[in-house]
Amino acid sequence: MKLTRRDAVAALAALGVGGTLSGCVAPPGSEPVDVDRLRETLVAAADVIYPSEVSGTATFVETFLEGRLEDPTHVAGLDEAVTELDDNAMFWHDERFAALSVTDREQVLRNIDVDTADEDPTGTTSERVRYYVVNDLLLALYASPAGGELVGIENPQGHPGGLASYQRGPSA
Protein backbone atom coordinates (compact mmCIF):
# COMPACT_ATOMS: atom_id res chain seq x y z
CA MET A 1 0.00 0.00 0.00
CA LYS A 2 1.29 3.43 -0.94
CA LEU A 3 0.70 6.14 1.64
CA THR A 4 -0.04 9.60 0.32
CA ARG A 5 -0.02 13.14 1.52
CA ARG A 6 -3.80 12.90 1.64
CA ASP A 7 -3.59 9.94 4.02
CA ALA A 8 -1.45 12.04 6.32
CA VAL A 9 -3.90 14.93 6.18
CA ALA A 10 -6.64 12.48 7.17
CA ALA A 11 -4.48 11.29 10.07
CA LEU A 12 -3.93 14.87 11.18
CA ALA A 13 -7.61 15.69 11.04
CA ALA A 14 -8.17 13.06 13.66
CA LEU A 15 -5.66 14.66 15.99
CA GLY A 16 -6.90 18.19 15.79
CA VAL A 17 -3.94 19.54 13.92
CA GLY A 18 -3.91 20.53 10.30
CA GLY A 19 -2.94 23.00 7.69
CA THR A 20 0.49 23.45 6.23
CA LEU A 21 3.54 25.15 7.47
CA SER A 22 6.83 25.62 5.75
CA GLY A 23 10.35 26.61 6.62
CA CYS A 24 11.92 26.77 9.99
CA VAL A 25 9.70 26.93 13.04
CA ALA A 26 10.35 28.84 16.17
CA PRO A 27 7.60 27.99 18.59
CA PRO A 28 6.81 31.12 20.56
CA GLY A 29 9.06 31.52 23.55
CA SER A 30 11.46 28.73 22.73
CA GLU A 31 14.72 28.12 20.89
CA PRO A 32 14.22 27.57 17.17
CA VAL A 33 14.33 23.87 16.39
CA ASP A 34 15.99 22.18 13.47
CA VAL A 35 12.93 20.98 11.59
CA ASP A 36 14.98 19.15 8.98
CA ARG A 37 16.55 17.03 11.67
CA LEU A 38 13.13 16.17 13.12
CA ARG A 39 11.82 15.31 9.69
CA GLU A 40 14.79 13.11 8.78
CA THR A 41 14.66 11.33 12.10
CA LEU A 42 10.96 10.55 11.92
CA VAL A 43 11.17 9.38 8.33
CA ALA A 44 14.14 7.20 9.29
CA ALA A 45 12.27 5.77 12.27
CA ALA A 46 9.21 5.07 10.10
CA ASP A 47 11.35 2.71 8.04
CA VAL A 48 11.68 0.60 11.18
CA ILE A 49 8.24 1.15 12.66
CA TYR A 50 6.00 0.83 9.61
CA PRO A 51 5.29 -2.54 7.99
CA SER A 52 7.22 -3.31 4.83
CA GLU A 53 4.12 -3.41 2.70
CA VAL A 54 3.56 0.34 3.00
CA SER A 55 5.47 2.70 0.77
CA GLY A 56 5.39 6.46 0.40
CA THR A 57 6.19 6.85 4.08
CA ALA A 58 8.41 9.92 3.63
CA THR A 59 5.61 12.11 2.24
CA PHE A 60 3.18 10.72 4.79
CA VAL A 61 5.47 11.37 7.73
CA GLU A 62 6.54 14.80 6.51
CA THR A 63 2.95 15.94 6.08
CA PHE A 64 2.01 14.57 9.46
CA LEU A 65 4.94 16.35 11.06
CA GLU A 66 3.90 19.66 9.48
CA GLY A 67 0.69 19.45 11.45
CA ARG A 68 2.45 18.50 14.65
CA LEU A 69 4.78 21.49 14.31
CA GLU A 70 1.82 23.73 15.09
CA ASP A 71 1.89 22.58 18.69
CA PRO A 72 4.93 24.16 20.42
CA THR A 73 4.74 21.87 23.43
CA HIS A 74 4.78 18.84 21.21
CA VAL A 75 7.66 20.24 19.16
CA ALA A 76 9.75 20.84 22.27
CA GLY A 77 9.15 17.29 23.50
CA LEU A 78 9.86 15.81 20.10
CA ASP A 79 13.04 17.82 19.73
CA GLU A 80 14.32 16.62 23.06
CA ALA A 81 13.47 12.99 22.28
CA VAL A 82 15.19 13.20 18.91
CA THR A 83 18.29 14.71 20.52
CA GLU A 84 18.49 11.80 22.93
CA LEU A 85 17.95 9.31 20.16
CA ASP A 86 20.78 10.92 18.20
CA ASP A 87 23.02 10.93 21.28
CA ASN A 88 22.50 7.21 21.62
CA ALA A 89 23.11 6.62 17.93
CA MET A 90 26.37 8.59 18.21
CA PHE A 91 27.39 6.61 21.25
CA TRP A 92 26.86 3.18 19.67
CA HIS A 93 27.54 3.90 16.00
CA ASP A 94 29.23 7.29 15.72
CA GLU A 95 26.47 8.56 13.47
CA ARG A 96 23.16 10.33 13.80
CA PHE A 97 20.12 8.07 13.94
CA ALA A 98 18.91 9.04 10.47
CA ALA A 99 22.30 8.22 8.94
CA LEU A 100 22.27 4.60 10.17
CA SER A 101 21.16 1.52 8.30
CA VAL A 102 17.63 0.35 9.05
CA THR A 103 19.03 -2.57 11.06
CA ASP A 104 21.19 -0.26 13.17
CA ARG A 105 18.34 2.13 13.74
CA GLU A 106 16.23 -0.70 15.07
CA GLN A 107 19.14 -1.76 17.26
CA VAL A 108 19.45 1.73 18.74
CA LEU A 109 15.75 1.78 19.56
CA ARG A 110 16.07 -1.61 21.24
CA ASN A 111 19.25 -0.62 23.07
CA ILE A 112 17.32 2.12 24.82
CA ASP A 113 14.37 -0.22 25.48
CA VAL A 114 11.91 1.73 23.37
CA ASP A 115 10.26 -1.51 22.27
CA THR A 116 9.24 -2.48 25.78
CA ALA A 117 8.73 1.02 27.20
CA ASP A 118 5.29 2.46 27.92
CA GLU A 119 4.85 5.87 26.32
CA ASP A 120 5.09 8.84 28.63
CA PRO A 121 5.61 12.42 27.39
CA THR A 122 7.36 13.37 30.63
CA GLY A 123 9.07 10.09 31.47
CA THR A 124 12.49 8.56 30.92
CA THR A 125 14.34 8.71 27.61
CA SER A 126 12.87 5.44 26.42
CA GLU A 127 9.36 6.48 27.46
CA ARG A 128 9.66 9.80 25.69
CA VAL A 129 11.14 8.33 22.52
CA ARG A 130 8.31 5.84 22.61
CA TYR A 131 5.79 8.70 22.95
CA TYR A 132 7.17 11.26 20.51
CA VAL A 133 8.76 9.05 17.91
CA VAL A 134 7.52 5.47 17.85
CA ASN A 135 3.95 5.86 19.09
CA ASP A 136 3.37 9.11 17.26
CA LEU A 137 4.25 7.33 14.04
CA LEU A 138 2.04 4.38 14.97
CA LEU A 139 -0.82 6.70 15.88
CA ALA A 140 -0.49 8.55 12.57
CA LEU A 141 -0.70 5.29 10.68
CA TYR A 142 -3.23 3.22 12.57
CA ALA A 143 -5.70 6.02 13.39
CA SER A 144 -5.88 6.85 9.70
CA PRO A 145 -8.09 5.02 7.23
CA ALA A 146 -5.02 3.95 5.23
CA GLY A 147 -3.49 2.18 8.23
CA GLY A 148 -6.87 0.89 9.33
CA GLU A 149 -7.38 -0.77 5.99
CA LEU A 150 -4.17 -2.74 6.42
CA VAL A 151 -5.87 -4.38 9.40
CA GLY A 152 -9.41 -4.52 8.03
CA ILE A 153 -11.01 -1.47 9.62
CA GLU A 154 -11.61 1.36 7.18
CA ASN A 155 -12.98 3.65 9.91
CA PRO A 156 -10.52 3.30 12.78
CA GLN A 157 -11.02 4.94 16.16
CA GLY A 158 -10.12 8.60 15.94
CA HIS A 159 -11.20 8.95 12.33
CA PRO A 160 -14.58 10.51 11.45
CA GLY A 161 -15.39 7.90 8.83
CA GLY A 162 -19.17 8.22 8.87
CA LEU A 163 -21.99 5.88 9.73
CA ALA A 164 -21.95 3.41 6.87
CA SER A 165 -18.92 1.30 7.71
CA TYR A 166 -20.17 -0.10 11.02
CA GLN A 167 -23.25 -1.46 9.28
CA ARG A 168 -21.32 -3.08 6.44
CA GLY A 169 -20.45 -6.75 6.42
CA PRO A 170 -16.97 -8.02 5.60
CA SER A 171 -17.75 -8.93 2.01
CA ALA A 172 -19.55 -5.67 1.15
Binding site: E119, L138, L139, L141, G148, V151, I153, P156, G158
Partner: peptide, 8 residues
Protein backbone atom coordinates in the same frame (compact mmCIF):
# COMPACT_ATOMS: atom_id res chain seq x y z
CA UNK B 1 -9.04 -1.51 18.58
CA UNK B 2 -6.00 -1.76 16.28
CA UNK B 3 -4.60 1.65 17.18
CA UNK B 4 -4.90 0.83 20.88
CA UNK B 5 -3.03 -2.46 20.38
CA UNK B 6 -0.35 -0.77 18.28
CA UNK B 7 0.47 1.80 20.96
CA UNK B 8 0.79 -0.73 23.76
Amino acid sequence: SPVGMALT
